[in-house]
Design a protein around this nucleic acid. Structure first.
Length: 835
RNA sequence: AGGCCCGUAGCUCAGUUGGUUAGAGCGCUACGUUGACAUCGUAGAGGUCAGCGGUUCAAGUCCGCUCGGGCCUACCA
């Protein structure tokens, strides 16, 4: 960073904090407020340029709205709750959670992370997570602060903090009371490594090599065998039916009859369903409980038997499922029981080969398999008891999506795609530790059975509760886990179940109704497109239930930051010199923000150091221009922009103000900047050069115009370049530029003669440019004196030039300027000086 | 498989409702300034606006198809 800019940023960061420049004034009424549902960043990740980009976009909007006179509610949250943090802590400290262990009050994490990880109790593990997240949050705070985000830091929350836990648990209790949250035992997407349930929104397809095995099923009533192809022969024991399309001519005869499974001799019905694809394999498939999500649909809609064989740790059950009765079936299952899925697959194929029920050899293929986005192995589907939140009708969700203003508009399609593809309700249960616990206990009957269908919910006044540490109303602590007593719900909520309440957490819905009604529903949800199906969608669902309306009126969707190959930037792709603290140190926060401002809503942004250089140059130019203008002789008290050229410059500025304002109102800060920046360079290169001599001489019109243009330009640039504009503002103005009024066309109207347009400056600049060009081509210094210049132009041009005559002559160092009527606009600098 | 976005100078991108000769910044080259400028100015080279077809007096812009890139959703027995 240049010396000019270096000290500026630290100085202003400190002053803004001291003076509370961005502090939210909660005495304002709702219509005076602009409130933002800031995305709480996942603090367990690593910092890269993408973070700076999207958060700058939000800050641009916040600063614009603040200058327009809105009181901006701009909180910051930290998303520290959840599995990402657990994994980071496990890695950093070498500890893992074992909920069966008792709390150790003297526990200190090992100095160096042991391998395998040390097992610690849940309360100890949670305490370590809290310590680590505090540390990580500090590094995010430093980044946001260095970047100049105008966040009100007194409005901060963490998704694991008391406020979030209270809000989240209260929200859950509300939904439970209204029958919108329910617990049921059902097929659950399951990650066998992390041993937790996963929601539909967290699925990810990955290409994986696999193989089609062709299996022979006998008909129960005899006759031609049926061949099916499967990629999952290890699930054969879980087969509950064969299915083909109802219109498939090949299978009309056998619908309704039974088949016998290979190896296990289980009698399964042959059924018809529209989701069976006649084109695929032999057109008939085996339905297992459960191989994939289509199996769940078939199982539900066709009312099939349940024959689950996959355990939560990814092994096959030790006892055979119901239905396997033949001696060879039991023997075959005995070969597979307790094996991991890969082993079971290998052994299944061996057994099928031996029995002759495998036709040919498996054909290798590559296919898409569903993974959890954080997972390492394909998801399995197990039967489990889980809490769900019921979704509203699809049409209701779609209508809410239509009411929301999307920036850009086309992002709505992603929301609609997602809503239209929803399968079942939202599973909010996670079998993890560092999360918001369900505020729920279950009674234990005197015979020791847990009464899962009679949950005891916590009292609202007691929130937040940890049911593993406190006891339900009407019980004593000593009754935990004993017959006649109670047991805690062991699970925590999906992190989205809490972050989907971010507008409620940030607005203190739970404990400050006054604040809540001043800022909710919010004006803006800024976020990335990749989490439309999670954060945005879930927040709409929760707000629909909690408030019966949209949580915000606008959603501004930012793109990715990519490297020049259009690949999304990731930790591995970048190098150390490109990490955010280095970039800010090297180019300055204003320059980083300038680069970020080039990314329109919804558009991917290419990481480009060159743009950082351009931004830094602009910041320097603003400093230099300002120094020059403010160093001119102070104007006589009532000086006003009276000369036509000055008026003309201000008329152009009026247009810039109008255009930039309109662009900002449409969340197009990029266009606003693209409007302001060329005006400013024109101001420096042409207007200032034209009036320089006049200004040196103390001409009031020129100086007043320059000062007015400077004041306006600083305010227009302020959202983009908050540090350098604030510095210059402080040289000659009271208060912060960031609380100054956004420029308005009306402000300029007071100074402008109605008839003057931007044309005089444009024409004069064109002639000045032509004079420079002629000098350059004549190999003359730009300051060379020209005895005579002749300009030919139409009457309009000549009138304009007449107004600017004196300035043109001084700027071009022209002794005599002749204006002649003629076509076009031509300049002759005179033959005698071209030598 | 359906859908969305994109394709304009070496690079990053503008190009409003169709309307002169398609622009900017950066980079490159040359020259000049360096008396507001950790610089600045002027000029030059560089474009079949991805391709093909259509509508129109007129298409980078509107329509259709094709190709290429990115993404969303679904399917994946």
């Amino acid at each position: 960073m240049t010396d000019l800019l270096k000290d500026l940023e630290a100085k202003w960061r400190q002053r803004w904090a001291e003076q509370g420049t961005y502090r939210f004034d909660r005495t304002k009424a709702r219509e005076q407020i602009y409130s933002i549902d800031t995305p709480p960043p996942t603090v367990s990740g690593s910092l890269h340029p993408g973070h700076m980009c999207s958060y700058t976009h939000t800050d641009l909007i916040a600063r614009f709205q603040r200058m327009r006179g809105k009181e901006v509610f701009y909180p910051m949250g930290w998303d520290d709750n959840g599995l990402n943090t657990e994994r980071r802590v496990q890695l950093m400290l070498g500890i893992a959670c074992d909920p069966s262990l008792p709390y150790d009050p003297d526990f200190v994490p090992p100095r160096t992370p042991p391998d395998p990880p040390l097992r610690v109790s849940r309360p100890n593990f949670v305490a370590c997570c809290q310590q680590i997240t505090e540390m990580l949050e500090q590094s995010y705070f430093d980044l946001w602060s260095n970047l100049g985000l105008s966040v009100d830091w007194s409005q901060s929350y963490t998704t694991i903090g008391d406020l979030s836990r209270r809000t989240s648990q209260a929200g859950f209790i509300d939904l439970h009371e209204r029958g919108l949250a329910y617990r049921t035992e059902s097929p659950t997407l399951w990650d066998v490594d992390f041993r937790t349930a996963v929601a539909q929104a967290e699925l990810q397809d990955r290409k994986l090599p696999g193989a089609f095995s062709r299996l022979r099923f006998r008909r129960a009533a005899g006759g031609e065998p049926i061949h099916i192809e499967t990629t999952r022969p290890e699930l054969l024991a879980a087969c509950v039916a064969l299915v083909a399309h109802p219109d498939d001519a090949r299978y009309q005869e056998i619908f309704g009859s039974d088949a016998l499974t290979p190896l296990f001799d289980v009698r399964v019905p042959i059924v018809a369903h529209r989701l069976a694809d006649p084109e695929k394999g032999s057109g008939i498939a085996m339905i297992c409980t459960f191989g994939d999500t289509t199996d769940i649909t078939w199982w539900r809609e066709l009312g099939l038997e349940l024959r689950g064989i996959v355990e939560k740790d990814g092994t096959l059950t030790r006892t055979p499922p119901q239905g396997i009765e033949s001696a060879r079936g039991l023997a075959a299952f005995g070969e597979l029981a307790g094996k991991g899925l890969t082993q079971a697959r290998r052994r299944s194929l061996e057994l099928l080969r031996e029995s002759g029920e495998l036709e040919g050899e498996p054909k290798p293929i590559e296919h898409q398999v569903k993974f959890w986005e954080n997972g390492a192995r394909p998801l399995e589907i197990v039967i489990n008891r889980q809490w769900f939140i019921r979704y509203p009708e699809k049409e209701v969700l779609l209508e809410l999506g239509r009411q929301l203003r999307w920036w850009p508009e086309f992002m709505r399609v992603r929301y609609e795609n997602w809503v239209n593809g929803l399968l079942g309700d939202w599973n909010i249960t996670r079998q993890r530790f560092f999360g918001v616990p369900f505020p729920v206990w279950y009674p234990i009957a005197n015979d020791g059975t847990v009464l899962h269908d009679q949950p005891i919910l916590a009292d609202r006044d007691a929130l937040p509760v940890d049911p593993s540490a406190s006891h339900p109303p009407g019980y004593t602590a000593g009754q935990r886990n004993v017959p006649g007593g109670f047991t805690a719900d062991p699970d925590v909520m999906d992190t989205w179940a809490t972050s989907s309440l971010s507008p409620y957490i940030a607005s203190h819905w739970i404990d400050d109704a006054d604040l809540h009604q001043r800022v909710f529903p919010m004006d803006l949800r800024p976020q990335a497109h990749e989490i439309i199906r999670t954060w945005l969608f879930y927040t709409i669902v929760r707000s629909h239930y909690a408030s019966g309306r949209l949580p915000w009126s606008n959603a501004a969707i930012s793109g990715f930051v990519t490297d020049p190959d259009r690949k999304k930037l990731s930790k591995s792709a970048g190098n150390a010199a490109d990490d955010p603290p280095h970039l800010i140190a090297e180019f300055g926060a204003d320059a980083v923000r300038y680069w970020a401002a080039g990314g329109r809503p919804g558009q991917d942004v290419i990481f480009d150091r060159n743009q950082l250089r351009v931004g830094r140059r602009l910041a320097t130019k603003i400093l230099n221009f300002s120094k020059f203008v403010l160093g001119l002789p102070a104007p006589a008290a009532p000086a006003k922009p009276s000369l036509a050229l000055d008026q003309s410059m201000l008329a152009g500025l009026r247009g810039v103000v109008a255009e930039a304002t309109a662009a900002f109102e449409n969340y197009d800060y990029t266009k606003a900047l693209e409007t302001i920046e060329p005006f400013f360079w024109n101001l420096c290169d042409n207007y200032l050069e034209l009036v320089k001599v006049r200004a040196y001489e103390g001409d009031g019109s020129a100086i007043a115009s320059l000062r007015f243009a400077l004041s306006t330009a600083l305010r227009l640039f302020a959202p983009f370049l908050p540090f350098v504009t604030e510095e210059v503002w402080s040289w000659w103005q009271e208060g912060s530029v960031h609380r100054a009024a956004w420029p308005s066309a009306a402000e300029l109207d007071g100074l402008l003669e109605p008839a003057v347009g931007a044309g005089i400056l444009d024409t004069a600049a064109a002639v000045l440019g032509a004079i420079r060009k002629a000098k350059t081509q004549a190999r003359l210094p730009l300051r060379a004196e020209l005895p005579q210049v002749t300009v030919t132009g139409d009457q309009g041009h000549l009138n304009a030039l007449e107004e600017a005559r004196r300035d043109l002559m001084s700027a071009g160092n022209v002794k005599s300027l002749l204006l002649k009527e003629g076509g076009g606009l031509a300049i002759d600098i005179g033959a005698e000086v071209t030598a």
